[in-house]
Amino acid sequence: MASTDLSAEIEQRVLELCGEFKQGITYQIIQNDMPQLKLDIIVQIINKLLATSRVDMLKKDNDILVFKLRDPGTIHRIKGAEPEEQVVYKIIEECTTSGIWAREIRAKSNLHLNTVEKVLRKLESKKLIKSFNSVMAPKKKSYLLYELEPDRSLTGGAWYSDQQFDSEFVDILNQQCCRFLEDKLSTARQVAGGPMAVCNTSYVSSKDVLKHITAIGITKVRLTIEDIETILETLVYDGKVERSIGGAGASVGGEDGGVVKLYRIVSSLLPTPNIITIPCGVCPLIKECYHVGNVTAVKCRYMKEWLNLEW
């Protein structure tokens, strides 16, 4: 009786140690903690723990064995599975949301590729893991745990649907943001109190834009502030919008108190360039056009069309 009590106590202590050292414990640590124990007792205890799947045994680079506490959730799910499955599952689990490629699993587990694939299929059918294609490398299949969502860097965030960049969606958002800012400007123009007031009220924070976009419900995807700022940034590069940084002022910012990005619509400094209004301005052959040869001003079809249309 005494020996079972003792071994239970030691077990308890070992598990406690594992809990303390998250990166795992070695023999040495156990020995130091309980110097009176003999090695064979420790081995016995460890083996018992391993058999009941309460700790994992891992090998470090310098051939030192390390013991780690096993996640109770995993114990439950993978119970009764074959050892290969356990190994593969563990590798996939370690990669969390970033996913892992079948070939890398093979390298890490030292299993044959065929075995790995078989195991992966099995795990998939048990709904323990799932596969997906990253937007970076659409042909590469990666695996991750079933309940996890792939990382943003792999799915491409809100802008990708079915691994394809959804440029239509981006364009629509772009237009909607633009329209919203335009409305703001036209309401701002009615504000009394001088040009400065007009200018200030026409600024809109990215948060307000997000609110508006969510309110009109053009998308089911949940957008974050960063998402909407990327869109607004494209408008800045379109030259339609101007960005300014506002402090946590009275009108904007509010409770977050940090720096707020403000946007306002501006018109272009110049009207349409005149050169564009003549055929040569948009002529795809302008480089080939000379005073001799097949492409000349005299034979130019664009020019003729333009002249006849204008009347």
């Binding site: 050169i275 003549i278 040569c280 301005g281 302008i286 056009c289 005073h291 000349t296 001003a297 005299v298 130019c300 020019m303 002249l307």
Partner: peptide, 10 residues
């Protein structure tokens, strides 16, 4: 320049 030249020629 080229466009202008073309217009004159035309």
């Amino acid at each position: 320049y080229k466009a202008l030249y073309n217009l004159i020629v035309q």
